[in-house]
Design a protein around this nucleic acid. Structure first.
Length: 418
DNA sequence: TCTGGGGTCCTAGGACCC
DNA sequence: TCTGGGGTCCTAGGACCC
C-alpha cells in the first residue's frame, strides 16, 4: 500500500502556527511580488477566493471579510516542510518527498500493524509536533492514494485519513474525473465530452481508446485507478534536466542598468544552483518581456541563447555570456516586467573542454567558485557578489506583508509575551 | 498601480542518416 | 505512367504537476 500525506492549506497553516490569532480567520498567502493568491485557509476558500486570483481584483472582498493577507515566506515554509517530512520518516523510512507539502509513503514496511490506525497516529503526531494539520490517503497505487487523500480533505467526517475501500467503486464514483491526479483542465473537458464524468468512469474506460485519444499517461492513470501499479516510490531525486531563474520586477524596469543587474543576479543564482547539484550548463538562454496583461502599453518580448563552450557552472562566465546575449535584446522605451535565464541542457561529469582554455585557467575558476561559495555559506548569501549584479534593489520583489522567518533567523525568533 | 515561479513528460514533424 | 524502407535526433508546443 501507498499513503499520500498532504499538508492542509500549507502556507496558510504555517502562518498560523506562529500567529495563533489567525485561527478561524480567513488567511490568504500571495505569490512573489504580492501578485496572486497562492494559498488560502479554509475560511478564505469558503468566502470564494480562487487559487491564482490577482489580489488587486478582490480588494473589496478582502476588506469586507477582514481577510489576513500575507506575502509568501518561503524560508519559513521550507523549514516547516522539513520538520513535517522528518516526522513522517519516524513512521517509515520509505518516504518520497513529492513537493513542499506532500509526501508519498510506501507502507509495505508496516506489516502486521493496522495501516489505518498507524496513519491516524502519524497524522496526530505531525499536528502535535509541528502544528501543521495534514490529510492522509491510503491506496494500492499512488493515483489511488492521491484520490483517497482528496476524499479525506473533502469529507471532514473521515478525520483526515481515508483508505480506498474494497471494492473501490463507491469512493471512485464520488470523485470528479478532473480531481484525479494527472487529469487537468483540458483532459477533464475532453473526457466529459465522451461521457467520462467520475474517477470510476475513467477506471472503467477502454485503455486502448485512452491511449489513442490522449496519450500513454492517460492510459496509465486509468490503469492505476484499477489498482495496476505504474508509478513507484522515487526516493533518490533524478538529476534535473532544466534550470530556470527569473522574477517579475517589483516595479517596471526602464533602464539597461537595472535590467543588466537583474540578469546578472539571475545568472549568479542559476550558477550557484548548478554548483550545488554538481552540474554544468551546456546552453544558456536569456529572456525579457513587458507586461503580459497591460493592453495600453507597447509590448515587447525577446529571447536568445548561446552554447556554453566549454559547459560551465562558473558564475563570471555565465554572467558574461548572459549579458552578451541580453545587450542586443534590450530596446529603450519599454516598461519591462520580467526577465530571466534558462538552461535547458544540463550535464554532469567530465565535459568536452575548449581547445584554447588552459588547465590552470579552469582550475583557478573552480578554486575561486569554492572560495565564493564557502564565504557565502558561512557569512550569508550574497555577502560576496559580482559587481555586475549591482547594488540597487529597484527591480527587486515587493513583499509588504511578510511574516518573520521565525525558525531560520536568530533575529526573527518568535517572542512570547504575557 | 496592480496578474508567480518553478518543473516533468509526450507527441508530431522535420532534418538527417543508411 | 513513374520515386523505398527503414532508422535517430532535435525542437516546439501542449498537456500535466506543485
Amino acid at each position: 500500500m501507498y499513503a499520500l500525506a498532504d499538508c492542509n492549506n500549507f502556507y496558510a497553516s504555517c502562518e498560523r502556527v506562529f500567529e495563533p490569532k489567525l485561527e478561524r480567520r480567513p488567511v490568504v498567502v500571495l505569490s512573489n511580488n504580492d501578485g496572486c493568491i497562492i494559498a488560502r485557509s479554509q475560511e478564505a476558500k469558503d468566502i470564494g477566493f480562487k487559487m491564482g486570483e490577482p489580489i488587486f481584483k478582490c480588494q473589496p472582498k478582502v476588506h469586507a471579510h477582514r481577510v489576513i493577507v500575507r506575502s509568501s515566506n518561503f524560508s519559513l515554509y521550507g523549514d516547516m516542510s522539513r520538520r513535517v517530512m522528518q516526522t513522517l520518516r519516524l513512521f517509515t523510512p520509505d518516504v518520497e518527498v513529492y513537493s513542499i507539502d506532500e509526501a508519498f509513503l510506501d507502507l509495505s514496511g508496516l506489516v502486521g500493524r493496522c495501516t489505518f490506525d498507524e496513519m491516524a497516529r502519524m497524522r496526530a503526531t505531525v499536528l502535535r509536533w509541528t502544528g501543521i494539520p495534514i490529510s492522509i490517503g491510503i491506496g494500492k497505487t499512488k493515483t489511488l492514494a492521491k484520490l483517497a487523500n482528496h476524499y479525506a480533505k473533502k469529507h471532514p467526517e473521515t478525520g483526515g485519513v481515508a483508505e480506498i475501500p474494497d471494492p473501490p467503486e463507491t469512493m471512485l464514483r464520488k470523485v470528479d474525473v478532473g480531481d484525479v491526479w494527472g487529469v487537468g483542465r483540458q483532459w477533464s473537458k475532453k473526457l466529459q465530452m465522451i461521457g467520462i464524468q467520475t474517477a470510476f468512469d475513467l477506471a472503467s474506460a477502454d485503455e486502448t481508446h485512452l491511449r489513442k485519444s490522449f496519450n500513454i499517461m492517460a492510459m496509465k492513470t486509468a490503469m492505476e485507478l484499477r489498482g495496476h501499479r505504474f508509478f513507484g516510490l522515487e526516493q533518490t531525486p533524478e538529476q534535473r534536466k532544466t534550470l530556470l531563474r527569473s522574477r517579475s520586477f517589483g516595479s517596471a524596469v526602464t533602464t539597461w542598468k537595472d535590467m543588466s543587474d537583474a540578469i546578472a543576479s539571475h545568472a549568479t543564482r542559476a550558477a550557484e544552483k548548478l554548483r550545488q547539484e554538481e552540474l554544468v550548463a551546456k546552453h544558456l538562454r536569456v529572456f525579457m518581456h513587458t507586461s503580459l496583461f497591460n493592453q495600453f502599453e507597447p509590448r515587447y518580448s525577446a529571447s536568445d541563447g548561446v552554447d556554453l563552450l566549454p559547459p560551465t557552472n562558473t558564475t563570471h562566465r555565465i554572467i558574461k555570456a548572459a549579458l552578451d546575449i541580453a545587450r542586443p535584446l534590450w530596446k529603450d522605451g519599454f516598461r519591462y516586467k520580467r526577465a530571466g535565464v534558462y538552461m535547458p541542457d544540463l550535464g554532469k561529469g567530465p565535459v568536452q573542454q575548449c581547445l584554447f582554455d588552459t588547465e590552470t585557467k579552469i582550475e583557478n575558476d573552480k578554486r575561486m567558485m569554492r572560495v565564493l561559495d564557502d564565504i557565502n555559506a558561512s557569512m550569508g548569501a550574497g555577502t560576496l557578489h559580482f559587481a555586475a549584479s549591482g547594488f540597487s534593489s529597484k527591480w527587486k520583489m515587493r513583499q509588504l506583508n511578510r511574516s518573520p522567518r521565525y525558525t531560520t533567523r536568530w533575529d526573527e525568533l518568535p517572542v512570547v509575551t504575557s
